[in-house]
Amino acid sequence: MIFGPYTILILVIFVASLVIQGYLSRTYGKWGNVRNSRGLTGAQLARMMLDENGLSHVPVNAVPGNLSDHYDPIRKTVNLSEANYNLPSVSALAVAAHEVGHAIQDKVRMPALVLRGRLAVPLSLGMNLAPLLLLVGIMTSLSGLLWVGVILFAGALLFHLVTLPVEFDASRRALAYLGQRGVVAGQEASGARAVLTAAALTYVAGFAMALAQLLNVLGIARSQSD
């Protein structure tokens, strides 16, 4: 970590992120142990939702790992962790419907999803370079390098900002489908919402961390330029 005027804020957000991750794990685990009344696995729900939205060509795959679920916009595949793929739990339905929500976004070319896809690779490379540029800039007193680092951190903030509406919209689509199709109701609906809300908080924490890091490096760059 490069210390600056917002280091304490970064540490606070980091701790908050750990708490949120713990909350997500507990919530996901709780509803992962509750069998949904329809007896549908995540794979079955995903297949049904995809077919009903004209996406029968999109495969549903099982992938290793815990909470490794994701939609691949390049290969056009819905990928579910093995537990969500195979088990008929409330968590599996919520997560599967969320990932299919991304597939539907891709189908309709949701602007935020398209933008996030275009930003992903260059900003990922930039964030790998940013800490090195800042460190070299501080050690050599080259303010130009510091400001390049600031720009790269600003790019990371932009990525997180664009990610928020993409993730919130996918969860909205998931809950709407589950409710309208009568897949979940009552306590199961509350459980599905709790799982997706906990997941959404992790993206909010990611945005908060990116903002704090940008403010921190901006403060460093300003102090070095004075």
Score class of each variant (00 low, 15 high):
Ala208Pro: 06
Ala199His: 07
Arg47Ala: 01
Arg26Phe: 12
Arg47Leu: 06
Gln180Asn: 14
Leu214Ile: 03
His70Val: 11
Val136Trp: 02
Gly155Lys: 08
Arg193Thr: 10
Pro165Lys: 01
Asn128Arg: 12
Leu145Lys: 10
Gly65Cys: 09
Met110His: 12
Val162Gln: 05
Leu93Arg: 05
Ser124Lys: 12
Leu129Thr: 02
Gly149Trp: 01
Ala176Thr: 11
Leu67Thr: 11
Thr7Asn: 03
Arg38Cys: 03
Gly101Trp: 03
Ala92Leu: 06
Leu87Asp: 14
Gly42Asn: 08
Arg109Gln: 15
Ser25Thr: 12
Val63Lys: 06
Tyr71Gln: 07
Glu99Val: 04
Leu157Thr: 14
Ala174Val: 01
Ser56Asp: 13
Leu214Ser: 04
Tyr28Asp: 10
His160Asn: 15
Phe153Arg: 15
Leu87Trp: 08
Val121Trp: 12
Leu67Trp: 07
Pro111Glu: 04
Arg172Asp: 10
Ala189Cys: 00
Val184His: 05
Leu215Cys: 03
Gln213Ala: 08
Gly186Leu: 07
Ser91Thr: 13
Asn86His: 13
Gly65Ile: 09
Leu152Asn: 06
Met110Gly: 03
Tyr203Val: 06
Ile104Ser: 07
Val136Gln: 07
Arg173Gly: 02
Trp147Ile: 09
Arg172Phe: 02
Leu50Ser: 01
Ala103Leu: 08
Phe153Gly: 02
Val58Cys: 09
Ala200Pro: 00
Thr27Asp: 10
Thr163Val: 05
Asn79Pro: 00
Leu175Lys: 08
Leu123Thr: 12
